[in-house]
Simulated assay, not measured.
Amino acid sequence: MLESQISFFVVMLGAMLIPFLGRRFRLPGAALEIVYGIVLFNLFVRQRPEWFLLLKEMGFIYLMFIAGMELDLTMIRKSGKSFWYVLVALLSFTLTPLAFVALGQSFYLGLTVAMISAGIVIPVLKESGLNKTPLGQQVIGIALTGELLSILVLTLVDAYHKHGLTILAVLELARLTLLFAGAFLVLKALYILVWWHPERVSRLMESDDPIEEGIRTVVTVAFAGGLLASLAGAEPILGSFIVGMIFSYVFKSKGRFEEKINAIGFGFLIPFFFIGVGAEFPLGLLLSAETVRTAAVLTLAVFASNLSPLLLARPLGVTLLEATGMALLLSAPLSMIVVSGTIGMKMGLVSPTTSGALILTALLASILYPSLFRVLARRFAGDAASSSPPPA
Score class of each variant (00 low, 15 high):
residue 308 S to T: 13
residue 111 L to N: 13
residue 89 A to H: 01
residue 338 V to T: 06
residue 143 A to N: 04
residue 16 M to L: 14
residue 4 S to P: 03
residue 55 L to G: 03
residue 165 L to G: 02
residue 214 G to M: 06
residue 58 M to G: 05
residue 72 D to K: 15
residue 368 L to E: 08
residue 192 I to F: 12
residue 309 P to T: 11
residue 362 A to R: 00
residue 165 L to D: 04
residue 193 L to K: 06
residue 285 L to R: 03
residue 305 S to W: 03
residue 365 A to G: 02
residue 270 I to S: 07
residue 61 I to A: 14
residue 197 H to P: 00
residue 198 P to A: 13
residue 296 A to T: 10
residue 173 L to M: 14
residue 127 E to S: 13
residue 269 L to I: 03
residue 157 V to M: 10
residue 215 I to G: 05
residue 173 L to V: 15
residue 279 A to K: 03
residue 149 L to T: 06
residue 144 L to E: 14
residue 68 G to H: 04
residue 9 F to W: 09
residue 352 P to E: 11
residue 311 L to N: 02
residue 178 L to A: 15
residue 19 P to L: 03
residue 194 V to K: 07
residue 61 I to E: 11
residue 65 F to S: 10
residue 241 F to I: 09
residue 278 G to N: 02
residue 89 A to V: 06
residue 379 R to C: 02
residue 47 Q to L: 05
residue 308 S to N: 07
residue 98 L to K: 05
residue 346 K to L: 07
residue 210 P to K: 07
residue 112 T to Y: 05
residue 208 D to L: 11
residue 110 G to S: 02
residue 85 Y to N: 08
residue 90 L to E: 03
residue 65 F to D: 08
residue 149 L to F: 13
residue 281 F to Q: 01
residue 68 G to C: 07
residue 225 G to L: 12
residue 363 L to E: 10
residue 152 L to N: 02
residue 60 F to M: 12
residue 292 V to E: 09
residue 305 S to I: 01
residue 146 G to R: 07
residue 105 Q to E: 12
residue 334 L to H: 08
residue 42 N to S: 14
residue 46 R to I: 10
residue 227 L to H: 09
residue 189 A to E: 05
residue 4 S to C: 07
residue 373 F to W: 08
residue 323 A to S: 15
residue 256 R to F: 08
residue 4 S to N: 13
residue 86 V to M: 13
residue 228 L to Q: 11
residue 40 L to T: 00
residue 5 Q to M: 15
residue 22 G to H: 04
residue 120 I to P: 09
residue 304 A to T: 07
residue 233 G to A: 13
residue 56 K to P: 04
residue 51 W to Y: 13
residue 65 F to L: 10
residue 224 A to F: 15
residue 347 M to R: 06
residue 137 Q to D: 11
residue 310 L to T: 08
residue 278 G to F: 00
residue 310 L to F: 01
residue 110 G to D: 03
residue 280 E to A: 08
residue 360 L to P: 00
residue 265 G to Q: 08
residue 79 S to K: 04
residue 136 G to C: 06
residue 26 R to I: 13
residue 50 E to H: 11
residue 101 V to P: 00
residue 379 R to G: 03
residue 297 V to W: 12
residue 299 T to Q: 02
residue 199 E to N: 08
residue 3 E to S: 14
residue 182 G to W: 09
residue 167 I to F: 14
residue 175 R to Q: 14
residue 310 L to Y: 02
residue 238 L to M: 11
residue 198 P to T: 13
residue 9 F to K: 04
residue 388 S to D: 05
residue 246 I to G: 05
residue 105 Q to D: 06
residue 3 E to G: 06
residue 32 L to V: 04
residue 108 Y to N: 01
residue 355 S to K: 13
residue 84 W to S: 09
residue 114 A to Q: 09
residue 351 S to A: 01
residue 49 P to V: 05
residue 191 Y to E: 12
residue 249 Y to D: 10
residue 321 L to P: 01
residue 313 A to V: 09
residue 71 L to R: 00
residue 225 G to P: 09
